[in-house]
Amino acid sequence: MNVFERSFGEQARLSREESHHLVRVLRARVGDAVNVLNGEGAVGVGRLIDASIPAIIRIEERKQYTRPEPQITLGICIPKGKTFDSLLKKITEIGLFDVCPLLSERTEVKLDAETSAKKAEHWEQTCIEACKQSSNPFLPKIQKPSTLQSFLEACDADLKIVASLEPASQPLLATLRPSKRVAMLVGPEGDFSPAEYSQIRTCGFLATSLGRNVLRVETAVVYALSVIHAASLR
């Protein structure tokens, strides 16, 4: 069983929410083995010693994992509906460094400051649940929603690629090279506008094809991340 707690030493005192899930939902009992993830690569291997709320876990061994390379940044135009939640779960299971939700000309989702803050909190919790489910010791950082232009100006990755439907796009494998940091840009369902593609190319992004078929946003992202990870192991 996995739980999440950002800070722990010889013991981990869980939050009310984590305690409830561990004891009431998973029905953990005193003496049960529990792994504590902090989202930064540390995993505490321990046992439940107090099944009340807050629950307490005695840490018997602490493991520290090194974040794998390349560190992948995903810039993605926010899809409508519950698609983004489902997408966050899948990409957290696969693994990446951070996620930058974007607003572009053709993005249908509209967010104000208050809504953005609530969404960011919800998105992070979604990723935490996926970390626990997949035993991923690294929690992706969810950046504040921003404009495409802001993302392009701030991006300083070694390799920058954009999933593109343009005829001149190169196959994904052909654009990959050994890199410590990779930025992957995925547009909205209606794709980026010609003006946006011009900005993207000016900022050094390489147009890459994910195959001849037109993929849904969530399919495109999972496919691209899987290929990038597989290529890094060669």
Score class of each variant (00 low, 15 high):
86 S>E: 07
88 L>F: 00
90 K>S: 10
90 K>M: 05
90 K>V: 02
91 I>N: 03
91 I>F: 01
92 T>M: 00
92 T>N: 02
93 E>F: 06
93 E>P: 05
94 I>N: 15
96 L>C: 01
98 D>I: 00
99 V>E: 00
103 L>T: 11
103 L>E: 04
104 S>C: 11
104 S>F: 04
104 S>E: 04
104 S>R: 08
106 R>F: 04
107 T>Q: 10
108 E>V: 13
110 K>G: 05
110 K>V: 12
113 A>L: 10
113 A>K: 11
113 A>P: 15
117 A>Y: 12
117 A>T: 08
118 K>C: 13
118 K>W: 13
120 A>R: 14
120 A>E: 13
123 W>H: 07
124 E>D: 14
131 C>V: 09
131 C>D: 09
132 K>T: 09
132 K>S: 15
133 Q>D: 13
134 S>E: 05
134 S>G: 04
134 S>W: 14
138 F>G: 02
139 L>Q: 03
139 L>W: 01
140 P>C: 00
142 I>N: 04
142 I>M: 09
145 P>R: 07
145 P>H: 03
145 P>T: 04
145 P>M: 02
146 S>V: 13
146 S>K: 07
147 T>D: 02
147 T>A: 02
148 L>H: 05
150 S>L: 10
150 S>T: 11
152 L>C: 14
154 A>Y: 13
157 A>I: 12
158 D>H: 15
160 K>H: 10
164 S>E: 02
169 S>Y: 09
174 A>K: 15
175 T>F: 10
176 L>H: 11
177 R>C: 08
177 R>H: 11
178 P>G: 07
179 S>E: 06
180 K>T: 13
181 R>Y: 12
183 A>K: 13
184 M>H: 07
184 M>C: 12
185 L>S: 05
189 E>V: 05
191 D>E: 00
193 S>P: 03
195 A>L: 03
195 A>W: 01
